[in-house]
């Protein structure tokens, strides 16, 4: 263990209290199993998700900045956000507050009005759950802790489009060996391979899932998801590993819808990477919230000896 991210502030965000609850549960369980501590932000607010920027991007910046200021007040210099949308928004706020005078002014004005500290860029680092595990435990640390190897499990690692985009808000990425790649992200691949999984080559790991229009334009989302699913199957995957609650829920919902509306049944399972890692660390499927998923992967889990 490097100790770098041994204890971090935790920003679950709204999705992890709703449809992504299994991700919340499994992230906390994995942290505990790995000896990492997360402390949830007190009185956190929504980051603005995908909606507030459509009303006013600077308001969105403020909403994320407020969460960062809470982390600072709690004495943390790192906040971990497992949700791609939250992670993206906090990183974007950090970027804008360091460069855009208007964003700084709006943030200062709204913070003053709300009666809390004005967050200043550079005080708190935002990391993803993948960064958290990769940099604090690393592959070697995971190998040492695996009690129930994922050996024999073929995994397509799906990152979605928000984890690496836009590139300029992730200055720590694309820095060569050891850093994450925006073109071909690999942290999830590295972590699950260390847990024994066989990663398949998956050419759509950063492709759009149609997440924002999962309900408003269901047909397009279903077609996009069906292509993600059939491609994963064609690549030989038993399971698609996810690290974004929006992508995960979209894949699950539209897998069902593709069968109902388009008559296309796919068998590939969908699990959060934290669920797979948790089971590899010896946690029960229930402990990592497999029963909370829409996608029923219990047969696969039993078949692979993970239950």
């Amino acid at each position: 263990m490097t100790g770098k991210y041994e204890k971090v502030a935790y920003y679950p965000g709204c999705a992890l209290e709703g449809t992504g609850h299994a991700y919340n549960r499994s992230t906390k369980a994995v942290g505990e199993a790995l000896g990492l501590e997360v402390v949830e932000l007190k009185n956190w607010n929504c980051c603005g998700a995908m909606e507030v920027k459509n009303v006013d991007p600077k308001l969105q910046t403020y909403l994320s900045a407020r969460n960062l200021s809470i982390a600072q007040d709690m004495g943390f210099d790192t906040v971990m956000a497992p949700c791609n949308g939250c992670y993206h928004n906090l990183k974007k706020a950090e970027y804008d507050l360091a460069r855009d005078a208007d964003s700084k002014e709006v943030n200062a004005r709204l913070s003053s009005k709300a009666g809390h500290r004005t967050y200043e860029a550079g005080k708190v680092e935002t990391i993803h759950a993948l960064d958290w595990i990769k940099h604090s435990i690393g592959e070697e640390g995971i190998r040492e802790r695996v009690r129930n190897s994922l050996s024999g499990l073929k995994v397509a690692n799906y990152y979605g489009c928000m984890y690496t985009r836009p590139r300029h808000i992730f200055p720590e990425k694309d820095k060569g060996p050891g850093s994450e790649s925006t073109a071909k992200p690999h942290f999830m691949d590295d972590i699950l391979e260390a847990a024994g999984a066989e990663n398949v080559e998956y050419p759509l790991k950063t492709a759009c899932c149609g997440g924002a229009h999962a309900l408003s334009d269901s047909d397009t989302s279903t077609k996009l998801v069906l292509n993600l699913l059939t491609t994963a199957e064609a690549c030989g995957a038993d399971v698609i590993a996810t690290e974004c609650p929006t992508c995960h829920t979209g894949l699950e919902m539209h897998q069902v819808r593709a069968e109902k509306v388009l008559g296309r049944k796919t068998k590939v399972k969908i699990l959060y990477f934290t669920q797979l890692l948790g089971m590899a660390l010896g946690l029960s499927p229930r402990k990592v919230g497999v029963h909370e998923n829409f996608s029923d992967s219990r047969d696969l889990i039993r078949e692979k000896g993970l239950a």
């Binding site: 995908m50 489009c161 759509l204 397009t220 064609a234």
Partner: peptide, 28 residues
């Protein structure tokens, strides 16, 4: 694999074009 990726591009752009009357398509 190449065909699958091209199909995804076509579905993505096709979806954006279809919804053009309603607004933009994607998360950002």
């Amino acid at each position: 694999l190449a065909a699958m990726v091209v199909r995804h591009l076509a579905l993505f752009v096709g979806g954006k074009l279809e919804t053009a009357g309603l607004g933009e398509f994607c998360c950002s």
